[in-house]
Simulated assay, not measured.
Amino acid sequence: MLMSSADRPATLRYGPNGFRVLSPGNHVLCAVTGEQIPLEVLRYWSVERQEPYATPEVATRRLLGEA
């Protein structure tokens, strides 16, 4: 069975004001929790670490070194 891009995670390049899709997909996985984050609701990421986060709380924990 062929997978469409909707069935797999996207590969993104994170910038300070947005992200660029490097390979198509409809979600990314939170770097801390592993939770699927649909691209249309992705709001939190680290440019330096190039990783996405599911919530602002998770992002804060990660950036403070607690996760």
Rank of each mutant, 00 (worst) to 15 (best):
Y53S: 07
Y44A: 07
V47K: 04
R8M: 15
A6R: 12
L29K: 05
G34D: 11
D7A: 13
S4Q: 13
P52W: 00
L42P: 13
R20F: 01
A31C: 07
A31P: 10
S46G: 12
L64D: 11
R43G: 03
P52R: 00
E66G: 00
P9Q: 05
D7Q: 15
S46W: 03
P52K: 00
Y44C: 08
T60A: 12
I37Y: 02
L63V: 00
A59P: 01
E48Y: 09
G18W: 05
S4I: 04
M3P: 06
A10I: 06
Y53A: 07
V21N: 09
L2V: 15
G65H: 02
Y14G: 06
A54M: 02
L22R: 09
G65K: 01
L29I: 00
E57W: 08
R43E: 11
A67P: 04
T33W: 02
H27K: 04
R13T: 05
L39E: 08
A54N: 12
E51K: 13
V32I: 07
E40L: 07
A67H: 04
Q36Y: 01
L39Q: 08
L42F: 07
N26D: 15
G25Q: 11
P9I: 00
R43S: 09
V28H: 05
V32S: 15
P52A: 06
